[in-house]
């Protein structure tokens, strides 16, 4: 069970949008599909994870499919869209102030645990103005921030956001660009360039590697990734093994599940990949 503060919870009382503040209103609002408290796998300490809706990637293994579409939508409450039951709205427009109010509720927990807020998605960089507002808000409040990102954004956006972020949780999926395009729908060229930029400008980065059997656990991909990260001087990798828990959501959203038959990796497979990275000199943690 997870703690949904937003629309997945059928009992949620919708947030009222704040009154318009002249022409700035569009900058202080964004679309969010969840706020989870007591997140303990998305960076240090006890955190609140804010999920921004909308993602330019189309990963086959995406475990937050309700975060892909940039607009609010609806999801069936039954096991799929054809079973009877109510549809629940997914995603809501929220003001930056409203999100900050939710974030600040748990600040004692952040203070005590060295935690903070993680912005995830979707792809948070796809709502750069809103994200910048929230990051600035956290900075003002002295709240640690982490950005869980695919890295897919223009270099201008990355350059603008990077100084506001304390820690990047940076997804790296596939080194071969052609395969990257096949499985995520976009090229990895910009992603790798942005990562290089962040590291060169001294940003704190943890690499997150979603381990998808048969797709990115080949020794070739692991070797290329190791070489690239070594070259950048990065030493830590978080291994996030594929799990099938999210599958139901595809059905409930009416989206295709292109990895329908894929089994999650077993302990041995996870251990093999972990050892592979460790032999390359990395510190590897399974789970975030």
């Amino acid at each position: 069970m997870v703690f949904h503060c937003l629309n997945i919870d059928p009992n949620h009382r919708p947030e009222l949008p704040l009154p318009a503040e002249g022409g700035l209103q569009h900058m202080t609002q964004g679309t969010i599909f969840d706020i989870k408290k007591f997140a303990i796998h998305d960076g240090p300490g006890i955190r609140t994870t804010v999920f921004l809706k909308g993602c330019p990637l189309d990963c086959w293994w995406c475990h937050n499919p309700e975060g892909r579409h940039p607009e609010p939508e609806s999801m069936a409450t039954g096991s799929n869209r054809d079973t009877p039951g109510d549809a629940v709205p997914v995603g809501t427009r929220m003001s930056g102030d409203a999100v900050m109010a939710e974030i600040e509720k748990d600040r004692l927990f952040y203070d005590e645990s060295g935690g903070g807020v993680t912005f995830s998605g979707g792809e948070p960089l796809a709502q750069p103005d809103f994200l910048a507002t929230l990051l600035n808000g956290c900075r003002e409040q002295g709240i640690h921030t982490a950005l869980d990102t695919t890295g897919y954004a223009t270099s201008e956006i990355v350059a603008r956001i990077a100084p506001l972020v304390d820690l990047f949780l940076y997804d790296l999926k596939l080194m071969d660009d052609r395969r990257h395009q096949t499985y995520t729908g976009v090229s990895n060229a910009g992603i790798l360039a942005n990562l290089r930029h962040l590291v060169k400008t001294g940003r704190k980065v943890v690499i997150r590697f979603p381990l998808i059997p048969q797709i990115n656990d080949t020794s070739e991909n692991l070797a290329q990734m190791g070489a690239f990260l070594t070259d950048l001087g990065l030493q830590r990798i978080d291994l996030l093994p594929f799990h099938g828990i999210h599958r139901q959501k595809y059905h409930r959203l009416g989206q295709p599940d292109r990895l329908g038959n894929l089994e999650p990796p077993g302990d041995a497979a996870i251990a093999r990949v972990k050892a592979d990275f460790e032999n390359g000199g990395f510190t590897v943690q399974v789970g975030g």
Partner: peptide, 13 residues
């Protein structure tokens, strides 16, 4: 660790 921090935070309150 996290559970300990939860407890400590509750006790701060």
């Amino acid at each position: 660790d996290r559970l300990a921090q939860l407890v400590r935070t509750y006790f701060r309150m």
